[in-house]
Computed example of a mutant assay.
Amino acid sequence: MDKLSVMNAFCRIVDRGSFSRAAEDVGVSPALLSREVKLLEESLGASLLTRTTRTMSLTDNGQLFYDEALRILRAVGQIEDRIREGAGEVSGHLKINAPTSFGQMVIAPILPEFLERYPCLRLSLSLDDRLVDMIEGGFDVSIRIRPTLPDSALIARKIGTMRQRIFASPDYVAKNGVPEAPDELLHHSVIGFLLADHLTSWALQGPSAVIDVPLDPPVRVGNSLVLRDLLIAGRGIGTLPDFISDAEEAKGNLVRVLPDYELPAPEIFAVTGSRLGLDARVSAFLEHLSSALRR
């Protein structure tokens, strides 16, 4: 059990007066927070919270734990601040994991400025489209693009939202026509993304409803940049994230298909192993990345 993390979570529960509001603050589920408090109480051999369906209050032992936990957390924060102020710079080794296409299209272009700003920093960037065990891999932060993330001991911080829309090349639509409704996609050559949840079914969000379109893509690839290149070459219709499609659409290499419809927008999460706060290296990187995403 990570005692400092549990202390932080417990204090947040008390301050917010609710497991659900505290869970939202720290980026985990209420069920996970409830389990952690139960484990804490079992380890102490004492009840800290009295809970009913409508109210929650501190026991005497809970009040004692809350007061001492606040004192300890403040002391840890002050020590960290002093060390960071004394160091005066972001340094050390930062290990990042990210999806391949996002790493190439979004992270790689911002690295020169980031490294120039923090010259004492060592950096490792690992690109992998499959979900990796970031703790086993020794990563400080993992960028994950998902509609939601499952409960885990890791902490996920939302840093952006991605749009996923439908595209084809001008040559393809000139030769094959443009589908006017989602069900007309069944008569077109669709290129699928192997690692996506929507490989064989697109839940398209339209003006008034969500329409499920079953698919059996004859061509399936495991990399969004390969998918982009196939679309530009006129090989079919497919979906692309905005960080890949925007530039190609602006240059006229791709055109929107069914512009009133798009897939559910995945969230961009930064996943770390600590609930207490971010390492200075991770904080600097995520601030830099978030700024780029806002632009």
Rank of each mutant, 00 (worst) to 15 (best):
K95E: 03
I96N: 01
A98K: 11
T100A: 09
S101Y: 02
S101T: 12
Q104N: 14
Q104S: 12
M105P: 07
V106H: 10
V106R: 05
V106L: 09
I107D: 02
I107C: 04
I107E: 12
I107A: 00
I107H: 12
A108F: 07
A108R: 15
I110K: 05
L111I: 07
L111F: 01
E113L: 11
E113V: 10
E113R: 13
L115A: 06
E116Y: 11
E116R: 15
Y118C: 00
C120P: 04
C120M: 13
R122C: 03
S124K: 03
L125T: 02
S126L: 09
S126Y: 12
L127N: 01
L127F: 01
D129P: 05
D129K: 08
R130K: 12
V132W: 00
D133G: 08
E136F: 05
E136G: 09
E136Y: 01
G137K: 05
G137T: 10
D140M: 01
S142I: 00
S142V: 01
S142D: 15
I143K: 05
R144Q: 13
R144M: 12
I145C: 06
I145V: 13
R146G: 10
R146S: 14
P147L: 15
T148F: 15
L149H: 11
P150E: 09
D151L: 00
S152D: 08
S152G: 15
A153Q: 06
L154I: 10
I155V: 15
A156H: 05
R157S: 14
K158H: 08
K158A: 11
K158N: 12
I159G: 00
I159M: 04
I159H: 11
G160T: 01
T161A: 11
T161W: 07
M162R: 05
M162D: 13
M162N: 12
Q164N: 14
Q164V: 09
Q164S: 02
R165H: 03
F167V: 02
S169G: 08
S169T: 10
D171Y: 00
D171M: 13
Y172L: 06
Y172H: 00
V173W: 03
A174M: 10
K175T: 02
K175C: 04
K175M: 04
N176M: 13
N176C: 07
N176E: 13
G177W: 05
V178A: 08
V178N: 07
V178P: 06
P179I: 08
P179M: 04
E180F: 02
A181L: 08
A181H: 09
L186Q: 07
H187M: 11
H187F: 12
H188A: 10
S189D: 08
S189W: 04
S189R: 15
V190L: 10
I191Y: 07
I191R: 08
I191E: 01
F193W: 12
F193I: 04
L194C: 09
L195F: 14
A196V: 01
A196M: 11
H198F: 14
L199A: 03
T200C: 09
S201Q: 13
A203S: 13
A203P: 14
L204W: 12
Q205W: 06
